[in-house]
Amino acid sequence: MTRNKSRWINISFQFAAILLALLFTTIILLFSGAPPLQAYANIINGSIGSLKKFSDVLVAWVPLLLTTTGLLVTFTAGLWNIGIEGQITLGAIFTTGLLRLFQDSGLPPGLILILAMLAGMLGGALWASLAGALKTFGGVNEIFGGLGLNFVATALTLWLIFGPWKRPGIGSMSGTEPFPNHLWLPMISGTRLSIWAVIIGIIALAVIYIVLRGSYFGLRLKAVGKNIRSSFLIGIPTSRYMMSAFILCGALAGLAGAVQVTAVYHRLIPSISSGYGYLGLLVAMLINYKALLVIPVSLFFAALNIGSIQLPIILKLDSTLSGVLQGALVLFFLMMDGVRQRVLRKAER
């Protein structure tokens, strides 16, 4: 009975958070002299208004799904893997490197693509293990280490694009020379969506869900995240577990980078990570690290990103509105969660 009641309390608080976020965004819209309902209608229409548009949402969804899934692992271990942006980037760099190496090798394209995905995972995992090593052996907080490594990753990308990997003729902001069509993940005709990318994303989530929920590893990882000292005292090799969390997350981030290269941009571009790492952090916070919520919430965020494209076209509105709404959602969820805990604690007393 009480359990049921607190569940309802939770839901109403979450509902209130959504309303507050909408309210906040609406007020901002009103202040900027824009018609809020029309803006929302355009976002909805622009994201799920047609099958084509929804397929665009799915294109943006897969990398977000992968990064958020990866972050579930590090969050479970109590780690803030801010370095995920760099891990996506390194994944993309490794994938590009492998494709460049093998594109004229005569190997079957399918095999090259599989190798490219694995290379991406390796790149992300290596970069994450750097942040992990800095944390576990160097005592550098993973937030600072990760941020620093993000900068290095971006600098490395730019250097490659304008230096060793520049196009024949002219170094271009538009990235490296695009790969031939047979090295693209096959797309559903008439769309930009690769069903393979979607499958990879869902499998990744399923695997992580099972690992976190149903395995001994997941259980111990959770213990490390909840209380690292006592975990250590009861004999869990905490450093090794934290490193594993970094590496797993990095591999998934790298896979997201590989998808960006093989399924979305078909080359290495300056901002290949597209901010999916930071967006993934928002989603992970919003869902309070519940694996099953990753799918709908990241889908919702991707839909906001794609839907908001209509705002400048139709309403001459700044499309960063979607970012405002995303940020507001996270803020108000965290805030309402704080309020809820306070209220519940009072109620218990």
Binding site: P63, V264, S274, G275
Partner: peptide, 13 residues
């Protein structure tokens, strides 16, 4: 459409 770059508009070309 402004801010047409992958950093501002993730997942679009």
């Amino acid at each position: 459409i402004d801010k047409v770059n992958p950093a501002d508009r993730a997942g679009t070309t």
